[in-house]
């Protein structure tokens, strides 16, 4: 029927079928955005996400090049492959944005997060919490007779697990920084 038997990207019969081409399953991606460190730049990025209905699972930002006046935003987001593509295109066209990298697709990367976890208890629970903290290489940064504050760094999943383990042992509260991420190897 269609005379156009073109190879690249051709979807032959139905050029667009909303559901099929990339799938409508949800994916989680870690995206880093290098931006001018100007007033309001974080509000701009957050406004883009809220205004267009994209998810933010985690977001961190800090200046990474003081002389060059640049900040790095690391955002973890969830969406269908088409939405993830849109998010990147929308970020890329913002005026203060230098570069957008999708670490999830651009090859291996390292992701780290820091958390502070407060646990209160006595007796068996207190001993067990300390033992688990040791297993997870968490540091004790504050102690009273009935509580600890642990500092733990690692991949987000490791922190999730640690917090879950602390729950029955007297978890009071936890503060997390969100993810910082970089690609592995010598390149950007």
């Amino acid at each position: 029927m269609n005379a156009l038997a073109l190879k690249k990207g051709s979807s032959r019969k139905s050029a667009y079928d909303l559901k099929n081409p990339q799938g409508d399953h949800q994916e989680t991606h870690t995206i880093t955005v290098l931006v001018d460190n100007e007033a309001g730049v974080l509000a701009r990025v957050i406004g883009l996400f809220s205004g267009r209905g994209y998810n933010i699972d985690s977001l961190t930002v800090a200046e990474v090049d003081h002389a060059g006046h640049r900040s790095r935003i690391t955002v973890v987001t969830t969406g269908t492959p088409a939405v993830i593509e849109q998010i990147k295109a929308q970020l890329e066209r913002m005026v203060p944005v230098y570069a957008v990298h999708d670490l999830t697709v651009e090859g291996p990367s390292v992701e780290r997060e820091l958390a502070l976890v407060k646990v209160a208890g006595t007796g068996e629970h207190r001993v067990e919490a300390l033992r688990l903290a040791d297993v997870f290489r968490a540091n004790v940064v504050d102690t009273t007779l009935e509580s600890f504050v642990f500092e733990i760094t690692g991949a987000p999943e490791k922190i999730d697990t640690f917090i879950e383990l602390m729950r029955p042992l007297g978890l009071v509260e936890a503060g997390r920084t969100g993810i910082a991420a970089l690609s592995r190897g010598a390149h950007i």
Binding site: L6, A15, Y16, Q86
Partner: peptide, 29 residues
């Protein structure tokens, strides 16, 4: 209706704004 939009065509889209491409309709080129 997007899922019934031009169902049998090979689509080329020229645009200066990358975010306009594949936003509502997937194109081939």
């Amino acid at each position: 209706r997007v899922d019934a939009f031009s169902p049998n065509s090979f689509k080329v889209h020229i645009d200066i704004d990358p975010s306009s491409i594949n936003k509502n309709i997937r194109v081939d080129v």
